[in-house]
């Protein structure tokens, strides 16, 4: 995990607008994008397709409850 990501309390949301034909395609691109960004545990929080593309919020969890949170152990938290 990168140093910066260790500082994330729980999740990283990526919000954007994707050019696509329908919601299904938007979902695929969203998850592909998260994969490319290195998020293993990604899910779509919100997606709405209309006209030119889809408004999307995709989430990658860095820590889930019960994990070992590195920010908790960081000396300079």
């Amino acid at each position: 995990m990168s140093k910066a990501l260790e500082k994330v309390m729980d999740a990283v949301d990526i919000e954007t607008f994707l050019i696509c034909d329908n919601e299904e395609e938007g979902k695929k691109i969203s998850l592909q994008m998260m994969k490319e960004l290195g998020f293993k545990d990604a899910s779509i929080v919100f997606i709405q397709h209309s006209g030119p593309g889809a408004r999307v919020r995709v989430r990658g969890y860095v820590y889930k409850p019960g994990d070992r949170y590195n920010w908790l152990f960081e000396k300079n938290n």
Partner: peptide, 13 residues
């Protein structure tokens, strides 16, 4: 703001 989202834990943000 995650009220209606059921795919995972609520985020601090």
């Amino acid at each position: 703001a995650d009220e209606a989202y059921s795919g995972g834990p609520i985020s601090a943000a």
